[in-house]
């Protein structure tokens, strides 16, 4: 018993760098082994997919890239899968960003998803990248009354009036759906508050896992669906792959689910061991 207590005492005082090392190994090992997992879609994710699935061809969908490099592993797969799905359904995709770092991310989707998978889709006719504008909620408020006063050009500096798909866009109400992929404020929450609720525009999207729980209260009345974190992205990817198998090559979140799962188990193990150590040493 004395030995046990000493052992647990030592364990509870272990140098945190050992914990760091264990986390690094649990994340790296499944990645190196390249294990692929599937994901069972949660109802909120399924709802996003089904709602888009029901959109008629030609529907106008705004997708806002409200994140930056720090959350790319969670957010980029969501944006890529959504754009792939929307273009597969022949919807018109309007990309923009409320975050200054979002521009590079929409560029990534165009270069890695749109151009290779949809060579026949034409820029300005089937999809457009409006880019970033400053203002945050002020920008959303402005777009609610006038899109073209703010976006006089697209991201590349071409006149907005020169694009056919912009001819019937005056305000946010002209969009059939708004999707926000976000990792903070301004993001999906602000799109719900300043656009969805105000103009009765269907809003949904994907957020980082940190942000997810605080968005649940908007479901289903104010937000028709939600992808929460990497798991949400993986679930959406599996739905898209099921419907459009050629998306399989673009899957990114699904590839990360194995290390993610192992890391979760490691964290749970840490909590359990930490608690055992606490109770064992407290007795003395």
């Amino acid at each position: 018993m004395k030995f046990d207590t000493t052992f647990w005492m030592k364990l509870s005082q272990i140098d945190r760098r050992w914990i760091f090392l264990v986390i690094a190994i649990t994340v790296a090992l499944p990645m190196v082994l390249g294990i692929d997992f599937t994901a069972v879609p949660a109802p909120m994710v399924e709802k996003v997919f089904q709602t888009i699935q029901r959109l008629p061809a030609g529907s106008k969908v705004l997708i806002s890239y409200d994140y930056g490099p720090s959350t790319v592993p969670e957010n980029q797969p969501m944006a890529d899968a959504l754009v792939f799905h929307l273009l597969s359904k022949d919807c018109k995709v309007y990309m923009m960003a409320v975050w200054a770092t979002g521009e590079r991310q929409s560029q990534y989707t165009i270069d890695h998803i749109v151009k290779p998978s949809f060579p026949n889709k034409e820029y300005g006719v089937d999809y457009i990248d409006l880019g970033f504008k400053a203002g945050g909620t002020g920008l959303i408020n402005m777009l609610f009354t006038s899109v073209k006063r703010m976006y006089t050009t697209d991201r590349t500096g071409n006149d907005i009036q020169s694009f056919p798909m912009m001819s019937d866009i005056e305000t946010l109400k002209n969009f059939d759906m708004i999707l926000s992929i976000s990792s903070g404020a301004p993001g999906l929450k602000e799109w719900i508050q300043f656009a969805g609720d105000r103009g009765n525009i269907p809003v949904a999207g994907g957020v980082t896992a940190v942000q997810a729980t605080e968005l649940f209260p908007y479901y289903p009345r104010q937000m028709f669906g939600l992808m929460a974190g990497l798991q949400g992205a993986a679930e959406y990817e599996s739905l898209v792959i099921h419907m459009y198998p050629k998306f399989f090559q673009h899957r990114s979140a699904l590839r990360k689910m194995a290390p993610q799962t192992v890391a979760h188990l490691a964290i749970i193990a840490f909590v359990i061991i930490g608690n055992i150590a606490y109770f064992m040493t407290r007795k003395k």
Binding site: E74, A209, K256, H264
Partner: peptide, 25 residues
């Protein structure tokens, strides 16, 4: 609620690390 938030926070943090490891790979 806080337990759920903690669970989701862990998920998010691990995901970000995965991104960096993918880059190093």
């Amino acid at each position: 609620t806080f337990g759920a938030a903690f669970g989701y926070t862990v998920m998010a943090r691990i995901s970000l690390l995965l991104g960096r490891f993918e880059f190093l790979q």
